[in-house]
């Protein structure tokens, strides 16, 4: 271009370069990225992915209950043997959880405002139970997580758990022998997996990794994974209720 236009010196035609430091530009970048609609979607997908990772990891850990009682108890002791790493993971998860909820509520509020008044006759081109209930299923899972942490992590809802130091095996079985506890658990993991059946396939779409050839595999694979996870989680209270899992002592 310069040659075509008579090789004018660059400085005379362009504003002085911006000398702002990298740190401020990085902050500006994050701030403007977060303000944008697509940026917020990226945050939801990134934090969602972290939480999906946890959901899978937690399931793999939990399924050890089907082994000898020592197996899951040793696993619990192993986790508690490195408190610093445990708290790092917990902090990351807590941050992801908070950001995921905060950002989606912001998105949902904006969406409601953007839609404004709706038509009298409302219809969709296909039934979409998971997509339409993302906020509700998410918030119900949040209430479950609060109870679940109080139940098994803080152990403040069941007096019998106080004496069971690292005996996770007995604790889980005693906990799930209560049909109300099991019922709430089953309902919650069902909602979680309904949430994930839309969440899984949304992650690659938001990251720009979807394509015509991958699309079917991503949609079907995401739904299959969600219901495999449901089967995995549901198997534990069901096994307890059906007396396939009983306390060792």
């Amino acid at each position: 271009m310069d040659a075509v236009l008579g090789n004018a010196p660059r400085a005379s035609r362009h504003a002085a370069p911006n000398h702002s430091s990298y740190s401020t530009s990085a902050v500006n970048f994050l701030a403007s990225f977060y303000r944008s609609s697509i940026g917020k979607k990226w945050i939801v997908a990134l934090t969602g992915l972290a939480l999906i990772g946890y959901v899978i990891g937690h399931l793999v850990g939990n399924l050890q209950i089907f082994g000898a009682p020592e197996k899951i108890n040793q696993y619990a002791e192993f986790l508690h043997s490195m408190p610093r790493a445990l708290w790092v993971v917990r902090s990351v998860l807590l941050a992801a959880f908070f950001l995921h909820i905060f950002t989606t509520i912001k998105l949902a509020t904006e969406n409601r405002a953007a839609k404004g008044r709706t038509n009298e006759m409302r219809a969709t081109t296909s039934p979409k139970p998971a997509k339409k209930t993302m906020v509700v299923s998410g918030l119900l899972v949040l209430s479950f997580v609060a109870y679940h942490l109080a139940h098994f992590t803080a152990r403040i809802t069941d007096a019998r758990f106080e004496k069971l130091n690292h005996d996770v095996h007995t604790m889980v079985i005693l906990g799930f022998q209560n049909p109300l506890v099991s019922g709430f658990y089953l309902l919650s993991v069902f909602l979680l997996c309904l949430h994930l059946s839309h969440g899984f396939q949304s992650v690659p779409q938001t990251f720009g990794l979807n394509s015509k050839s991958l699309r079917n595999a991503i949609t079907k694979g995401g739904q299959a994974l969600a219901w495999i996870i449901f089967a995995g989680y549901a198997s534990i209270p069901l096994a307890v209720l059906l007396k396939q899992l009983t306390p060792a002592h």
């Binding site: 609609s37 979607k41 904006e110 953007a114 979409k128 997509k131 779409q205």
Partner: peptide
């Protein structure tokens, strides 16, 4: 698009 007040895609694909 954001300034004009359009909402955010949540992958419904309607």
């Amino acid at each position: 698009m954001d300034e004009e007040g359009f909402g955010n895609c949540s992958n419904h694909y309607e």
